[in-house]
Lab assay of single mutants.
Amino acid sequence: EVTIKANLIFANGSTQTAEFKGTFEKATSEAYAYADTLKKDNGEYTVDVADKGYTLNAKFAG
């Protein structure tokens, strides 16, 4: 089991951190699915991958 950390950075400057656990593939998929649920209210996002894929920095356009 691994933990994927998602740093969510919103256009207004606020941030949120979420963690997803499971296999690498499952946890990564859940992190992206969570970011997708936030698109409606926060706009499209881009992701910078860090820490060999164990940290995802998602920046929302607003």
Rank of each mutant, 00 (worst) to 15 (best):
E1I: 15
E1C: 15
E1H: 12
E1W: 15
V2T: 06
V2C: 11
V2I: 10
T3H: 05
T3Y: 06
T3A: 05
T3I: 13
I4K: 00
I4Q: 00
I4A: 00
K5P: 01
K5M: 10
A6F: 15
A6Q: 04
A6T: 09
A6E: 03
N7G: 02
N7S: 06
N7W: 09
N7A: 05
N7I: 15
L8F: 15
I9W: 10
I9R: 08
I9C: 11
F10C: 06
F10H: 01
A11F: 09
A11S: 10
N12E: 05
N12T: 07
G13W: 04
G13F: 05
S14H: 13
S14T: 14
T15C: 15
Q16Y: 14
T17M: 10
A18R: 15
A18I: 15
A18P: 01
E19H: 13
E19N: 08
E19T: 13
F20P: 00
K21E: 05
G22S: 04
G22T: 01
G22K: 01
G22M: 02
G22H: 02
T23N: 08
T23I: 07
T23Y: 06
T23V: 07
F24S: 04
F24R: 07
E25V: 09
E25R: 08
K26L: 10
A27E: 01
A27D: 01
A27L: 01
A27P: 00
T28S: 08
T28A: 06
T28M: 13
S29Y: 12
S29I: 12
S29E: 14
E30V: 05
E30H: 07
E30I: 06
A31G: 02
A31T: 02
A31H: 01
Y32V: 06
Y32F: 11
A33C: 08
A33M: 09
A33H: 08
A33I: 07
Y34W: 15
A35Y: 15
A35S: 04
A35K: 00
A35N: 03
A35P: 01
D36M: 06
D36T: 05
D36Y: 04
T37G: 12
T37V: 09
T37R: 12
T37D: 09
T37Y: 12
L38N: 05
L38W: 13
L38A: 08
K39G: 06
K39D: 00
K39Q: 07
K39F: 07
K40W: 11
K40C: 12
K40L: 12
K40F: 11
D41H: 12
D41A: 13
N42I: 05
N42W: 15
N42D: 04
N42R: 11
N42Y: 15
N42Q: 13
G43T: 01
G43A: 03
G43Y: 02
G43Q: 02
G43F: 02
G43D: 02
E44W: 09
Y45R: 02
Y45T: 00
Y45E: 01
T46E: 10
T46H: 10
T46Q: 09
V47Y: 05
D48N: 11
D48Y: 13
V49N: 04
V49A: 07
V49S: 08
V49K: 07
A50K: 11
D51R: 00
D51S: 03
D51G: 04
K52F: 14
K52E: 15
K52A: 14
G53T: 02
Y54N: 05
T55Q: 06
T55F: 04
T55R: 03
T55W: 04
L56F: 10
L56W: 08
K59V: 14
K59I: 14
F60L: 00
F60C: 04
F60I: 02
A61M: 14
A61K: 13
A61H: 13
A61R: 12
A61I: 12
A61W: 14
G62N: 08
G62T: 07
G62P: 06
